[in-house]
Structure formats: structure tokens, C-alpha cells
Amino acid sequence: MSRLHVVSGKGGTGKTTVAAALALALATEGRRTLLVEVEGRQGIAQLFETEALPYEERKIAVGPASEGAAPWGASGAPSAGDPARGGGGRRAGGEVHALAIDAERALLDYLQMFYKLGSAGRALKKLGAIDFATTIAPGLRDVLLTGKACEAVRRKDKNGKFVYDAVVMDAPPTGRITRFLNVNDEVAGLAKIGPIHNQAQAVMRVLKSPETAVHLVTLLEEMPVQETADGVEELRAAGIPVGGIVINMTRPALLDNGDLDIAARDARGGVAKALSQAGLGGARRGGLAERLIDPLLEQAREHAERVELERAEHAELTALGLPTYELELLPEGVDLAGLYHLARDLRKQGPI
């Protein structure tokens, strides 16, 4: 099982939501997960309906109950007395901690870890040297972000056990995910010796090992699917393990195959008959039934075309040879209860 789950996807596909749901899904039976944000958008705090995350690891939720354990409420989310809300209630499930990584603070950690600068590092911050360093060397920011996440993956307690059973990273979009993860390879090549070289190599050992899996989030639409396929190809070429594909915001099938075939062609007679049987009167000129026929046929044709497109895009994703997971579109939007609903759906579909 992978321990570092990197979640990426084209903008608008819901990658932050999927990352949060995955962190919840992995936090089961006492397991601890860390949900990491690297883009500074505070999307995790918004999803979990909490205040902005500081640069520290903070418990924000508990995992959904396992089968046979004490149930959650009908909504699927913890009630006001549960640990996820800061109360003292007890429920089955593990813990979800969250961290919003700040590149500047991560650099101070780095300087302290390898160079023991202490107060000198804080002085550098006051002088603006850290901002200067991350600005003139944009790749340094990605080195710090990935390094902090990998440190959480490797961290152990005093008993030699991993502090976190899994780390989930809400990563940059698919278009730059390979460069983001592969930046330490470039750094290791530039710095041939010393602590920077050693740190970069240590990070890449994690990112290119079975401990890591990059999951790509997509919609059943042409552009997200094409970007997903391109992302898979780039990740494979870089030697970074690809996990699965999460098809987000899927829609229920409203018509079976037979009805879809009918909807794809003109079926005025059948629609008129059905309206008449529904008590809306015959299809006389100007009558209610007659006015409904064309709009109904147009909606049916649009739905049939949409289903045909989605099936074609689904086939493209299947051809990539990766596990796929599907999450339904939540009509009311994604609130905390919806997040737990998605987490349960992920768990039902098997390990990810």
C-alpha cells in the first residue's frame, strides 16, 4: 500500500475535494492521515469548515465509521459533539490531520535542520533574504514543499512507528505535476555533493518508490481526459508511480440503452402518445402536449449526446490501464456531510 498519495488534476475537476475525501477514507480503524496543502489557497480549511490552517499539523477530522462500528448520523458527518467538531464524543475511525505548507517557513526548517542556523535563520527572514531566495530560484519552492511532505512520510515516533499511516497531498494541477515532483532530481544533478544533494536524493527515493502513488482527478469531458492521459505519460516517463484515476462528478443514467436510442432520433409520435397517457391531452395544435413535445425531444437528444460523449471519454481512460474510481456529482454541492459521503464511496470501491 502506498503511504504518500499525491492528488492532481486539471483545474475545476475537484482535486482538492477528492484529496480531502481520500484522507478521510484512509483514516479508518485507528489509522492517522496527514492532508497536506501546497498551493496556499486554504481549500482544505474551507472544505472542513474550519479556520485558516497555520503552518503546523493540526487535527481537523475523524474518519468515517467502519462497518459494524457506531454509526454516524444520517448525514454521514460527525455531530457537534464529535472529535471532528472539537467535542469529546467518541466514534470509530482514525484521525485526519492537516498542514498548509508555507515555503518560507519550510526553508527556515531546512536551514535549521542542515545548518543549525537558529536565530540567524530568523534574522535572514527579517532581512527578506528568504523571499529573495525563493523568488530568484522558483524551483527551490517546490523542493521545500515536496521535501516537507516526504519528511512527514518518513517521520517516526520514539517507538520506531510511523507517525502517519498515510500522507495525502493536494498537489498542483496536472499540467505541472511532473515537474513539481521531479524538481529534486534536477537539484540533485546541480548540487553534486553536500546536504542539499543528499536531501534531494532522499526525497526522490520516496517519490519514485512504491511508497508513492500519484492519483489524477478528471471529469468525463474531452479536455480533462486528454490532460489526464498526457499527465500519465509524463509521470511514467519520469519514473514516478501513477496510482489511479478518479472520475469525479459523474451523473446518474436517466435512460437505459433502448431509450437512449429512441432519444437520438425523432420520436414525436411516441412522445405525443406518452403525454396523452399521462393525462395531458392529445397532441392537438396549440395544446399543452403539443407545446411540450419539442422541448422534451431536445432535452432527450442533448442527454443522449452527453451520454455518448461520456462513454467515449470513459473508454479513453480505461485504455490507460490504471484503476479507476468514480465519485458522483453531489447536487447540493460539497459540504462536510458530502465530503464524508464521498469518502465512504471511495472506501467501497477498494484500496486506492
Rank of each mutant, 00 (worst) to 15 (best):
Gly76Val: 07
Arg32Ala: 02
Glu302Arg: 15
Gly239Asn: 10
Arg155Thr: 13
Lys158Tyr: 12
Leu317His: 01
Leu309Glu: 12
Thr174Pro: 05
Trp72Ser: 00
Gly333Lys: 09
Ala200Asn: 05
Glu29Gly: 07
Phe114Gly: 05
Leu219Gly: 02
Ile245Glu: 00
Gly239Ser: 11
Asn248Asp: 12
Thr17Ile: 12
Gln42Phe: 04
Ser119Tyr: 14
Gly286Trp: 07
Ala84Lys: 00
Ala27Cys: 12
His303Met: 14
Glu313Ala: 02
Gly9Leu: 07
Ile352Leu: 14
Glu221Ser: 10
Leu35Pro: 01
Gln199Glu: 11
Ala80Glu: 14
Ala315Ile: 07
Ala25Glu: 01
Met223Thr: 12
Arg85His: 13
Ala149Pro: 00
Ala274Val: 05
Asn257Phe: 09
Arg306Thr: 12
Ala300Tyr: 03
Leu127Asn: 10
Leu322Ala: 06
Thr178Glu: 02
Phe114Gln: 09
Tyr110Trp: 14
Thr33Lys: 01
Tyr164Trp: 14
Glu227Met: 10
Tyr110Arg: 10
Arg31Gly: 03
Ile130Ala: 02
Glu29Val: 03
Ser79Gly: 15
Arg265Thr: 15
Pro331Val: 05
Ala343Gln: 00
Pro224Val: 06
Leu117Arg: 11
Thr174Gln: 04
Asp109His: 09
Ile44Leu: 13
Pro78Asn: 04
Gly282Lys: 14
Ile60Phe: 05
Tyr340Ala: 01
Phe48Leu: 07
Lys158Asp: 15
Asp185Arg: 13
Thr178Phe: 02
Arg32Met: 02
Phe162Gly: 03
Gly281Glu: 05
Gly243Ala: 11
Asp109Arg: 09
Leu339Gly: 01
Leu127Glu: 14
Gly189Val: 10
Asp185Val: 07
Glu151Trp: 03
Cys150Phe: 05
Ala20Trp: 02
Arg251Ala: 15
Ala23Glu: 01
Leu181Ile: 05
Pro71Ser: 12
Ser119His: 15
Met249Phe: 14
Gly270Ala: 15
Arg155Trp: 09
Gln42Gly: 02
Trp72Asn: 00
Ala166Phe: 01
Val232Met: 05
Lys156Gln: 13
Val36Trp: 00
Val217Asp: 00
Ala166Lys: 00
Ala103Val: 06
Ala289Met: 05
Ala52Gly: 14
Arg306Cys: 06
Gly333Phe: 09
Asp294Arg: 13
Leu336Gln: 10
Leu22Ser: 03
Ile262Gly: 08
Ala77Ser: 11
Lys15Ser: 06
Ile293Lys: 06
Ala133Phe: 10
Glu151Gly: 03
Gly118Phe: 11
